[in-house]
């Protein structure tokens, strides 16, 4: 599973990134979590409000920092 966190490097983006890593760890799944900070790539997903959570190329959530428990729902 490939998980991407879209965001221009603001504090909320970092929080979502950390929470997602935590969720992956707790679920014990095989997934890579990467940050996407390039605007061209962020826009290619159609996201205008960062941070956003993308799982396997699909935008799941945007403009919100999810809690670890809520992220797990999108990873199952």
């Amino acid at each position: 599973m490939i998980i991407k966190i879209l965001g221009s490097g603001c504090s909320n983006c970092k929080k979502l990134y950390d929470n997602t890593k935590e969720a992956v760890k707790e679920l014990g799944i095989d997934a890579t979590v990467e940050k996407v900070e390039d605007f061209k790539e962020i826009m290619a997903y159609g996201v205008m409000k960062t941070p956003a959570l993308v799982v396997d190329g699909k935008v799941k959530v945007m403009g919100r920092v999810l809690k670890v428990e809520d992220i797990k729902k999108y990873l199952k």
Partner: peptide, 16 residues
């Protein structure tokens, strides 16, 4: 909802 960290994607989205 708006924060300065979203102003760039927002700008690009509008212009596009």
């Amino acid at each position: 909802p708006f924060c300065s960290c979203s102003s760039v994607p927002l700008f690009i989205g509008f212009v596009e």
